[in-house]
Simulated assay, not measured.
Amino acid sequence: MNDPLLKLGQRLHYAFADEKLAQLALTHRSKGGKNNERLEFLGDSILSLIISDALFKQFPQAKEGKLTRLRSQLVRGKTLASVAREFELGEFLILGSSVIKSGEHRRESILADTVEALIGAIYLESGLEKTREVVLIWYQSRLQDLTLEDPVKDAKTRLQEYQQKHRLRLPVYDVQSVVGPTNEQVFTVSCSVPELASPLTAKGNSRRHAEQAAAERVLKQLGLQNQEGV
């Protein structure tokens, strides 16, 4: 195994036996050919399972809604990107030249997606229990710092909870357009609720980010942007 992967293994607390699998987990779609998107899909689900299980055990008296918000706080892109920066993961990414030149390799979403892909790769190579062991090392301090006080809810969560509380139709999100090359796509997403005559739209560099931005616009239009637990 080459020296960079040995170095990465020390940071991850996990040494890959399969060098090709490790490299695939680090390969962004901008590189062309095989990339880490399938591993990212797998890792996203496994991370959710591991964190859900950890929270279930850590907070035996917490209700479902509280556990869901805590999980969201831990698996969101911002947190994953923070984990990636702790590993200085950016230096190991395998990227297309256009992304490197533009500085996009530092983008939060690319870092977050790569962490999920690494989780997927560890799972394929070593199974669930080893993956759980590794992920819980990564999240040890974050889990220790959690309390049952409400974390800050993201815009989509706040809007959905407001609609549920007032027995209104849940928000509907629709992708209006996706433009740009594969590695630089811009999503335009609309969010509609019955209180507003027409949907509001917003843009983001992923569907998730665009939905959050659209939900934030709706909250602002409804005068709820600064309210928690609405």
Rank of each mutant, 00 (worst) to 15 (best):
T27A: 01
E216H: 04
G96M: 02
L80F: 09
K78C: 11
K66N: 14
L200Q: 02
L42F: 06
P194G: 06
V75Q: 01
Q227V: 14
E133F: 02
Q227L: 15
G127S: 15
A214Q: 00
G229P: 05
Q61P: 03
R167Q: 09
L49Q: 12
L146M: 07
L200E: 00
T188F: 04
F187Q: 02
G229W: 05
Q185T: 10
S126G: 07
V99Y: 01
V152C: 14
R69C: 06
E88N: 07
I51E: 03
G96W: 01
L111S: 02
I100V: 15
I137Y: 12
V179Y: 11
G32D: 03
P4W: 05
L39M: 06
N36S: 14
K34I: 12
Q58E: 07
D145C: 14
R167C: 06
A62Y: 01
T157K: 05
F187R: 01
L196C: 09
M1D: 08
P181D: 12
L124N: 03
A81V: 05
L49M: 10
L219W: 00
L159I: 03
E37D: 13
A62W: 00
A210N: 06
E64W: 14
E216G: 12
P171F: 04
H209Y: 05
E88K: 12
K101N: 09
F59T: 02
K78L: 13
R85G: 09
A213P: 02
A84R: 04
A22V: 11
I50V: 15
I94S: 03
V83S: 05
T188Q: 13
T188H: 03
R169S: 08
R158C: 05
V193S: 02
D44N: 15
T201W: 08
K63P: 03
S48I: 10
S30M: 05
H209S: 12
L74Y: 00
A54W: 01
N36L: 12
V186P: 01
Y162K: 02
H13F: 15
S102H: 09
V218L: 02
L26Q: 05
E228N: 15
I122F: 03
R167F: 04
E64N: 11
L47M: 14
R169H: 10
L124Q: 09
K66E: 08
Q176V: 15
L12Y: 00
L219R: 01
L128N: 07
G33M: 10
H105S: 08
L136M: 11
K203Q: 11
T131Q: 07
H209W: 12
L55M: 07
E195T: 05
G43H: 01
H13I: 08
V115M: 11
L74E: 00
Q212I: 11
R167A: 10
D3R: 08
L74Q: 00
I94R: 08
H166T: 10
S102P: 14
